[in-house]
Amino acid sequence: MKKKKEKKEEVTQKCEQMGRRDFLKKGCELAAAATLFVGFLPMRKAIPDSKATLPRSPGNKDYNWEDHLYAYIIDTQKCIGCGLCVQACRKENNVPEDFFRTWVERYQVSERGEVEIDSPKGGEESFGPALPGFNVSKGYFVPKMCNHCSNSPCIQVCPVGASYQTKDGVVLVDQKRCIGCGYCIQACPYASRFLNPETKIAEKCTWCYHRITQGLKPACVQACPVGARLFGDVKKEDDPVRKILATERLAVLQPEKLTKPSCYYLGLDKAVR
């Protein structure tokens, strides 16, 4: 008992030895050290990250999503199947291996009407030579991606409202709300969604929302060397995409599904689904 009492007294004495001034001084030092430590943590991480200069949305505070409505046009007559768009997408969005936010399909049609379709690795490494003995009378490439439908089955079936459409017309997935049930993946007729094997969350093309809200083009559009992919804002008067939408004859994928895609095709062949 005595020993315990003595110990208690020692502790109180030690506390009393540290005056108010000392306490404040030590406190300030500690605070400064902590600020420096915490401040440097993200910086150290940010330096090797090439995207550090591009803050993720909603980084652009001046951006008002009601001022925009985006549309995407794919010109199948121009696509050369180089696969640069697929590569750019994978790098920009860190798309897991074996999955695709965008991909390119190759169609080869013979004179007799036989169709050969392939998309090795989503066309990422471009395409090999045509099948030997297959007499190709016409051939073309069709890039594909999420169609950002305005009547989208994926948003409809999400049981927790994790899939939603922004006011500027982009279909996104709330990463913090998705439960990973996979219902949206089943509901998408274009197979443009997948379950990310690492995050276990439904993933798809976002039209690079973090870029477009900064006034940039999606990575795939920027990477395309032949201008087969066009991205624009139909609320801007002088937008080339708006002009094409107004004047050209366009098609959408699986129109019978009535999903109202915002992704339009020029020169789409009947063999494409």
Partner: peptide
């Protein structure tokens, strides 16, 4: 004639 064995990559 329909195309044989083509799956969407996903």
């Amino acid at each position: 004639t329909e195309a044989a064995q083509f799956l969407f990559p996903n």
